[in-house]
Amino acid sequence: MNTKVTLAGVELKNPVMTASGTFGSGAEYSEFVDLGRLGAVVTKGVSNIPWPGNPTPRIAEIYGGMLNAIGLQNPGIEVFCKRDIPYLRQFNTKIVVNVCGRTVEDYCEVVERLGEELIDLLEINISCPNVKEGGLAFGQDPRTVEVITAEVKKYAKQPVIMKLSPNVTDITEMAKAAEAGGADVLSLINTLTGMKIDIQKRTFTLANKTGGMSGPAVKPMAIRMVYQVAHAVKVPVIGMGGISSTEDALEFLLAGASAVSVGTANFYNPYATTEIVEGLVNYMKNNDVEEIQELIGSVK
């Protein structure tokens, strides 16, 4: 039985990855799961300089999901390279570094710096709904998506994943633009912009007013978009959005995702990632699936 998948020439032992921002750089969750059993660890977004993030409250629970407006708090690329990459390199897993920025130059600076590091893939976050500049602003216009992808590709030593926003009218337009800009892989979906109001205090629940919605409640939308994008482009797609079980992961694979990321589920089940790795193997055994590739995109 073969669970290996390949993303832009990088071979993952299985298609299970973590979703950026939900897993730090792996250290906290390594107390629960063996990171070496994951296909890849995707780190929290890193920028050229430390970012303090948004004021609190940064999260709110909603029915079947949550809103977050962390605001990409991170220690900056230098600390990240010195501390987090060596930590992750102890494990036999692939390292995907998520990159955020306020300007195209910010992204390129971080991507260029990461060229010196032993990491496997870059994921460019042009879809964070919680920062005023950069982030989502880049991910909602196809022309901008293409330009930023092409710019990043000039500096990138590793294959580039462009992470797409669902907060658009037609996600396939953004996917095609990223592909035209030279993206090696696409990942989707980032969170959906939402809002919650505290009726007792008559104010916004989140200090940022809006936040990114994630969790099981977003899964049907994510699967629909993964399906659409997988049919619209030739590059591989990483699917995410509300995955909390093996069944969820399988839905994404069948819809056309070459790999999947587990995000919010980590918060309520710190073992979610490795449980899904095991679950996929069991599904393959029980259904006589020899190659996991057979599943990918098989529901047309």
Binding site: G24, E28, P52, G53, T56, Q73, P75, G76, N266, F267
Partner: peptide
């Protein structure tokens, strides 16, 4: 309000007087 409860998600931060050794910001 917390999400992960173990230090990974950065939901439950408070402002620190000095730059924090882990976060490298005032959190």
């Amino acid at each position: 309000k917390m999400a992960c409860g173990i230090g990974a998600c950065l939901a439950c931060v408070c402002r620190s007087r000095e730059v924090d050794r882990h976060s490298h910001v005032h959190n």
